[in-house]
Amino acid sequence: MTGETGPVHDLIGIETARAVADTVIGLNDHLAGGGGVSGPRCPPRPQGRRVPLVV
């Protein structure tokens, strides 16, 4: 898909978008495997309906 441009290209480069997507996928895998997130501002993980990650 080289040569295509769109609104997102006006904001961030494709390399940045791919890096963000890779990070989100890794985080999703980590959380799905029972991992957690630490920090003072981390609220408890909600126990509601699951929403699939669409990439």
Rank of each mutant, 00 (worst) to 15 (best):
T2R: 14
G3Y: 00
E4C: 08
G6W: 06
P7R: 15
H9P: 00
D10Q: 13
I12L: 13
I14P: 06
T16N: 02
T16R: 06
A17D: 15
A17M: 14
A17L: 14
R18N: 12
R18S: 09
R18H: 13
R18G: 08
A19F: 01
V20F: 07
D22M: 10
T23D: 12
T23I: 07
T23L: 13
V24L: 09
G26H: 00
D29N: 15
H30G: 05
H30E: 09
H30K: 13
L31G: 01
L31Y: 08
A32M: 07
A32T: 14
A32V: 09
G34E: 02
G35N: 02
G39N: 06
P40K: 10
P40L: 12
R41H: 11
R41T: 09
R41D: 09
R41V: 06
R41K: 09
C42K: 06
C42F: 01
P43V: 01
P43W: 01
P43A: 03
R45T: 14
R45D: 12
P46E: 05
P46A: 01
P46D: 04
G48S: 10
G48M: 01
R50I: 06
P52M: 06
P52T: 08
L53Y: 07
V54Y: 08
V55E: 14
V55K: 13
